[in-house]
Simulated assay, not measured.
Amino acid sequence: MKEYEVIWEIFNKCPRNQMRDVFVEEIEIEDPEEYVKKKFQGKDVSYEKTVLEDGTVIFDIETSGIKQRCSFTEF
């Protein structure tokens, strides 16, 4: 298992409100992609995975018309 800091952002759909909900947690998992699949299981979801040079894994997610992002940084 690997330890990650996960930042989960939910983007606001209101055009005049650019704030977003942000949640931060530390978790132990083997595979960030499996974590994302389980988190949004049973929902109409699509995502795009990006791996940065520093190893951070980012998932840009759209579910039920709401844009979200999960960023995984390994400790």
Rank of each mutant, 00 (worst) to 15 (best):
Q41K: 08
K38C: 02
R16D: 10
P15G: 02
V51M: 08
D21Q: 14
T56K: 13
K49T: 12
I29C: 08
K38D: 11
Q41Y: 07
G42I: 09
V57T: 15
K2H: 09
L52D: 07
E9M: 11
K49V: 14
T56C: 06
E3S: 08
V24M: 09
M19D: 13
F59W: 02
V51H: 03
E74P: 02
Y35T: 04
I7P: 00
C70I: 15
W8V: 03
T56P: 00
F72G: 06
E53L: 04
F40G: 06
I58A: 06
E9F: 04
Y35Q: 05
G42L: 09
R20D: 05
V51K: 14
I10E: 15
K39S: 13
G55R: 03
D44A: 12
I58K: 05
N12T: 13
M1W: 00
V22W: 05
I7L: 11
E25W: 01
V51D: 03
F72H: 10
E30F: 02
M19I: 02
K67D: 13
M19Q: 12
M1N: 02
E3L: 00
E53N: 08
E26S: 09
T56D: 03
D31V: 10
V36M: 10
E62I: 15
E9H: 09
E25K: 14
D31P: 02
K2Q: 06
F40Y: 15
I27G: 07
V51L: 07
C70S: 13
W8C: 05
E74H: 02
V24L: 10
V22N: 01
Y47Q: 08
E5N: 06
F40Q: 06
G42C: 08
L52N: 11
R20K: 15
D21C: 04
I58S: 04
E62Q: 11
V6Q: 05
E3V: 03
I58H: 01
D54I: 01
E5Y: 01
N12C: 15
G65A: 11
N12E: 12
E3I: 02
E33Q: 13
F23C: 00
T63W: 01
F23T: 07
F59M: 04
V6C: 07
E30I: 07
V36K: 10
L52M: 10
S64F: 08
N17M: 10
E53Y: 01
T63K: 03
P15D: 04
E48N: 12
K39P: 00
